[in-house]
Design a protein around this nucleic acid. Structure first.
Lengths: 217, 217
DNA sequence: CTATCCCTCCCCCGTACGGGGGAGGCGATT
DNA sequence: AATCGCCTCCCCCGTACGGGGGAGGGATAG
């Protein structure tokens, strides 16, 4: 049996070196390349066709999630992708898996878990490590990420209410404001989101993850 | 170290027996009870406080997902829950994990994988088995399940276009129909979905899974 | 101090939207 | 043959919505 070919994608060179050191020590694992961002990972995958791609979520440019999607779309045969992340900061666990990642690994996992993870996904299985996943999932709701970031706090509240089906009058009542004020906010929201009407704004809210369907929680 | 206490919840007695046989053969695992549905699982958890709960998703009454949620809410300390499912039918993978399940196991997994899974979750780690998870996730989109089921084919098309931000005129153009026709369809959709305006209809479409945000794929 | 941004509220105006009717054609079911 | 549901199109009407202006107050930054 030939060695498992692994590609490492992480924006920090030190981390890449560390991973390479750990994996390189294993006789059945071969690190075939490194990438500093999602775009590099994509081209490296095209060139190297690794069996396993170890990818950080937080990277400049194409982040790990988007890169996962693109690589699985563009590279054939697709590598098995393990998304790596640090501790506190990540809401991306499920998004990563939904994007088609085969596994999810916390950076504070031990070296043993790492090589185990690589072997597991290379064998065709998926994995989740470790228990902290559930806690992360709970925290997953607090994601203001998106083009909705440009919205002010007030506008955010208004958009959230719009996304719950409220009319301008209802929003005004809810926030104890004049109906005219809401119209102004709605106008700003439409402009910032590039939406033509409130419906498009709500769609943008869903698509950007500013609000999420109940069944995703 | 004391044995891992396992509770088995499945509506088929034969399956329960099989699992019990497999797990009972392991010296470090003890099956402390069985349950035929979610409600039984809940009360059994309260009585036995197992370390691990092996639960089928499809069960009469309280299904596995709902039971998982309730048990994790109601039982302290909560057991580690492994959701078990058969092959084709399940969109529930992510819902199960989001409900707080520690792991997910296909029934066609081998006995070895089963005991391994029990040991893994008992140790505090989460797991996913096996590779089929991603394919299941991919199939997850095709769920016309919901209140949108009552919609006509035509109405479905219209709703889908509404959910893409189209105006009535645009929908009419898209479907090569009169604008008045679209108004009729929209009216029917609003009535069937219990929505007051197109925005609420689009929200219902998202919430019911009739359409899904791009980031869920 | 001034500029800028946000929040608040007001005006007018045009229109797309939604409610409430009706009506004809068409296929399937009964 | 009759009925029913679906699709198609038409009328009128009221209004919530969105565009385009303006304006004052408060906070922060320069």
């Amino acid at each position: 049996m030939t060695a498992i070919r692994v590609l490492i994608a992480d924006d920090e060179a030190l981390v890449r070196s560390g991973l390479r050191a750990i994996l390189g020590a294993e006789p059945d694992i071969e690190v075939v390349g490194e990438a500093a961002d999602g775009a590099e990972a994509l081209s490296a995958c095209r060139a190297q066709h690794p069996d396993v791609l170890l990818m950080d979520v937080r990277m400049p440019g194409l982040d790990g999630i988007a890169a996962t999607r693109r690589i699985l779309d563009a590279v054939s045969p697709p590598p098995r992708i393990v998304v790596v992340t640090t501790f506190e900061n990540d809401d991306y666990v499920y998004e990563a898996l939904r994007s088609g990642a085969a596994g999810f690994l916390l950076k504070r996992a031990g070296a043993e878990q790492l090589v185990q993870a690589v072997r597991t996904v290379a064998a065709g299985d998926s994995l989740l490590f470790p228990a902290a996943v559930r806690d992360l999932a709970a925290r997953q709701r607090n994601r203001p990420t998106g083009p909705a970031a440009a919205l002010t706090e007030r506008e955010g509240e208004v958009l959230r209410l719009m996304a719950r089906g409220c009319s301008n009058a209802e929003i005004a009542a809810q926030l104890v404001l004049g109906a005219e004020t809401i119209k102004t906010h709605v106008g700003s929201i439409l402009a910032k989101l590039g939406a033509r009407d409130r419906t498009q704004a709500v769609i943008a809210a869903y698509e950007s993850g500013f609000v999420a369907p109940g069944w995703t929680s």
